[in-house]
Simulated assay, not measured.
Amino acid sequence: MSSPCAPKYASAGDVGAALMMIDSRLKGIHAGKTGTDPEQQVMIEQFTASMGPNGADDLLDGACTLIFMFTTWLRQAHEEHDKDVIEYVVPNLVGTMRMMPRSVPSEAIPTMAGLVIAAGTGLSPNLWRRQYGDWTQEEMTPLEATAFLLAEHINRITDDPDFATRMITEALSGADED
């Protein structure tokens, strides 16, 4: 029996735009910048303002698709070592988010962990979340943080600061060729 939250029913959204935002954050962190670069923030705000109402939904769906793709990669990597992705990744993610109270309020942590658990069990994070109502403004930064933290986790595992971005870019390029 197929779940209504199965990935085949989900919109992929604007994965490219979501990846651009995450990659920009990753590069900023690795360049030693702390906090948000004001120029980068203006650029992101201008970009999101230019998208229109459907564009914002596409960006949300794109971020959830990234969470699904990152979690799927992590699940496969953990299964190769007979480990459960939920057991090893979710506690690390939750612990890290708890150390980020200005970016990720404690009330958003269960939802963000739920997105990763949904993806780890093969469900679409955006469809799983949608069943609980519309996204709130307070969830936007935690959503970005979740995708960022998963990408950074993958980069640390692979000892390659660009692995997660390259993996998604290659998947997108492969999809374009099909």
Rank of each mutant, 00 (worst) to 15 (best):
W73I: 00
I117K: 05
T96L: 07
K83C: 12
H81A: 12
V104L: 01
F70L: 03
G133S: 10
E107D: 08
P142E: 02
N126C: 14
L123Y: 14
T141D: 05
M140H: 11
P101Q: 08
P125W: 09
T71P: 11
L123I: 00
W135S: 04
Q131H: 12
A145S: 11
A118F: 13
R130K: 15
M140V: 14
T96Y: 02
I117T: 12
E107F: 12
T111F: 14
R98A: 05
M140N: 08
N92M: 03
T72C: 06
L115K: 00
K83W: 10
A108R: 03
I109A: 09
I117M: 06
G133I: 08
A119H: 01
P142F: 14
P105I: 01
A113R: 02
P91H: 03
A77G: 06
A118T: 04
Q137H: 09
E107T: 13
I117G: 08
A119Y: 13
W128D: 05
A118N: 12
T111I: 14
E138T: 04
L93K: 09
T136P: 04
D82R: 15
E139I: 08
W135I: 13
T65P: 00
R75L: 10
V116W: 03
L93G: 00
M99K: 07
V90R: 12
E138P: 01
V85I: 03
V94L: 00
H78F: 13
P101H: 04
E79Y: 08
D84Q: 11
A145V: 15
L127D: 02
G120M: 04
T71A: 04
R98Y: 13
C64N: 15
N126H: 10
P110I: 03
R75N: 07
A119W: 05
E80C: 05
Q76F: 06
V116E: 07
T71H: 14
I86D: 11
S106A: 06
V104G: 00
Q76E: 13
T65V: 02
P142L: 00
D82M: 14
N126T: 15
M112L: 02
W128C: 15
A118I: 13
A77L: 11
L143Q: 02
I86K: 15
H81D: 11
F70S: 04
M99G: 08
M99V: 00
V104T: 09
A108C: 11
M97I: 02
G95W: 00
P101D: 09
L74E: 12
T72N: 07
S106P: 09
D134K: 09
T72W: 03
A108T: 05
C64Y: 12
P105K: 12
P125R: 09
T72R: 15
V94C: 01
Q131A: 15
W135R: 12
I109W: 07
L93A: 04
A63Y: 07
F70T: 03
H81Q: 15
I67K: 03
A119C: 10
E80W: 09
Q131N: 13
